[in-house]
């Protein structure tokens, strides 16, 4: 019995030392991890709303949750650029989180895939940037598309799917199309862009 108490005390001590050390490291790394995630979203938003470099992007909340973003070209919020929203859909092997931006008449400005874990060499081509280019060749085709064109070619739309990764292409395209449909309804119903 005495032995058990001794062993328990030793294990307790080791566990306390270990968690203490981890708490210390966590304190150092946590601000960086949070900054990383915030930076990812801020940069993503700027990239899908071109023209807001000198302006502001403000989140719009519905019932306490951020649903979409409004972008302005100036700090005084006089010149609206458009809206941005995060679309999430399950692709072939992972959740794909795509940020997209539209102008005030709901024509796509740009897209940016924040995270995906699809098949390397196939599905991951949705993010591939060719040597010397500055943006993804696959996502470039979304620029200037209208809502009714947002379908992959196999479904009769205007988006060419990636060879060998139709499921991934379709998941991204459909998620943008669904989110955009919702956004359009939400904004036109509430007459948001009149008092923009």
């Amino acid at each position: 019995m005495k032995e058990i108490v001794k062993f328990a005390a030793i294990l307790m001590l080791v566990a306390v030392i270990a968690s203490g050390a981890l708490a210390y490291v966590n304190k150092i790394t946590l601000p960086r991890i949070i900054a990383q995630q915030d930076g990812e979203l801020t940069n993503g938003l700027k990239s899908v709303l071109p023209g807001t470099e000198n302006g502001v992007i403000e989140p719009v909340e519905i019932e306490g949750e951020i649903v979409y973003y409004k972008g302005f070209a100036d700090k005084k919020k006089m010149q609206p650029v458009g809206f941005a929203m995060l679309a999430v859909n399950y692709g072939y092997s992972s959740d794909i989180r795509t940020l997209f931006g539209v102008d005030t008449s709901f024509v796509l400005l740009a897209t940016n895939i924040l995270s995906q874990n699809e098949t390397p060499g196939l599905g991951t081509k949705c993010e591939e940037i060719k040597y010397g280019d500055s943006s993804s060749w696959w996502q470039e085709q979304f620029i200037g598309k209208f809502l009714n064109e947002l379908k992959v070619d196999k479904d009769g739309g205007q988006i060419q799917s990636i060879t060998g990764a139709t499921i991934t292409s379709r998941a991204i395209t459909n998620s943008i199309s669904q989110s955009l449909t919702w956004l359009k309804e939400e904004i036109t119903e509430n007459n948001q862009y009149i008092n923009f």
Binding site: K6, V14, A15, T29, I33
Partner: peptide, 29 residues
Amino acid sequence: PAKIRIPIFIIVIASFVTLVEMVMAGFFP
């Protein structure tokens, strides 16, 4: 003590793994 060496080894290993996890999330997202 020989009898509780495995749990102690596991705690040591798990601590270093968590350390790597945090550093990687912070610096190589």
